[in-house]
Design a protein around this nucleic acid. Structure first.
Lengths: 64, 64
DNA sequence: ATAAAATGTAAGATATACTTTGCATTAAGG
DNA sequence: CCTTAATGCAAAGTATATCTTACATTTTAT
């Protein structure tokens, strides 16, 4: 399933996939594939993305 | 780094690594290696573990 | 003290996250 | 328009999460 919350949060901060990727230490493709739901990211990467977006895990990666 | 919070929560519920593993759909070894910090689990697995332990991601996988 | 359950650990195999490179398309700004 | 930035997509390679099997050690309960 697509990760809408992550994409929205990124847009909200006006940062590109490329920028987020660089700050999180991965490639642009990886970010794109996570947002489109084709990748099941590792915990470390989730945390790195959260810190870049100033949120916690629950805010963008948790679903009831 | 070891995942103390996850281990504590599991103990608190009195369930074994084997039990948690079965409910989360992985092997006992995988759970052991995550608790000992040798594995960087996938988001899906983190979520499965959380649901089994009745917590959310932030409660056992988030560090400031 | 003894049996059973729980956990640690390890080697080899498999699946898949992630990278690299590259090209095509779309959106945004001059 | 025209250029540039942003995104989508794909193939081949690398790294590593996870499995399987197996044995050793520790913990728990009788």
């Amino acid at each position: 399933m697509k990760n809408i919350k992550m994409k929205l949060k990124r847009k909200e901060l006006h940062i590109s996939q490329t920028e987020l990727a660089k700050k999180a230490g991965v490639t642009r493709q990886t970010i794109g594939l996570i947002e489109s739901g084709e990748f099941n990211p590792s915990l470390k990467l989730c945390v790195a993305i959260c810190k870049t977006l100033n949120v916690t895990l629950d805010e963008i990666f948790w679903e009831e």
